[in-house]
Design a protein around this nucleic acid. Structure first.
Lengths: 146, 146
DNA sequence: GTATACTCTACTATTATGATAGACATTATA
DNA sequence: TATAATGTCTATCATAATAGTAGAGTATAC
């Protein structure tokens, strides 16, 4: 797993929207400013997240973005996989991967699978509701900080 | 952690050399052919591994490469970190990382640290001696396969 | 009808990755 | 001592991913 800026931004944005779940829509501009993300870049990320069913949008004057599902039902893992792809350390199962003709018999293979499993155990068991609570406990002003 | 081709090739090569630890040097050409690695690319990787103290070389007619240390004393984690860098999923502690001014208070931070720790637990506890034994058990002809 | 939002497509700059090329240095051995 | 077989070193290159930027278009509250 490698988390890109895009993934990092997506997580921070979903957390912001989770914190304001049930409230009025939040504009791209606000979301971008609060998390220090280039506005036009976030625009694209939000369109992706919309296509992924994570967020909804309202157009027009009092438009903005809303979480499409309750924070309790969105896990960290879902978002990461959607934005940054599979969580495995190496994609040697992919048919485009060179070498590794007999992947099923490779000594390294089950080590990477073990890493993937441990990673999944962590990120799939954390919901954005958990993160909102964790955040509030520390009373931070910034939505993505403790 | 993301393992690149370079990392993958390095691991396969160290495993090959581990399998032949104590024997005569093995040429780049042989190593490349056995693991299906572009020879000139492996050449560079071996120079890196030499600088890292993982392998030694012999020049001249019956030259080639040898493991610099016993397979029992080389872990998977050491090689991966040397070739592909830190094992963490995101490098937000790096001073060049944008955003995340208050990284110590970020809700995501300790999740990434947890992922890193679990990954390290796996890769730092496996030596190339372990892998050689695992390989032999399955009697594979290819050095990097089970 | 207009200001304020989201939408969509295209483009661009930079870096990492995965090599390839070729001249050079060393050494066993015939 | 010539030479063939080996490692050494530096430069270059092609492609893809990443991280944006630009600008014209569409919807909606007021």
């Amino acid at each position: 797993m490698r988390i890109t800026y895009k993934g990092d931004y997506a997580l921070k944005t979903i957390l912001d929207l989770s914190t304001h779940y049930g409230d009025a829509p939040i504009t791209i501009h606000e979301l971008a400013a609060r998390a220090d993300i280039p506005t036009k870049f976030l625009e694209q990320i939000l369109l992706d997240l919309k296509r992924g069913g994570f967020v909804e949008s309202r157009r027009g004057k009092i438009g903005g973005y809303l979480l499409a599902r309750p924070p309790k039902e969105i896990t960290l893992g879902e978002v990461i996989r959607f934005i940054d792809g599979p969580v495995e350390p190496i994609n040697c199962l992919d048919k485009h991967y060179k070498g590794c003709k007999e992947v099923t018999r490779c000594v390294f293979r089950d080590i990477w699978q073990k890493v993937e499993k441990e990673t999944a155990n962590i990120i799939d068991s954390i919901t954005f509701d958990d993160l909102v609570k964790k955040n509030k406990k520390f009373g931070s002003s910034l939505v993505y900080q403790i």
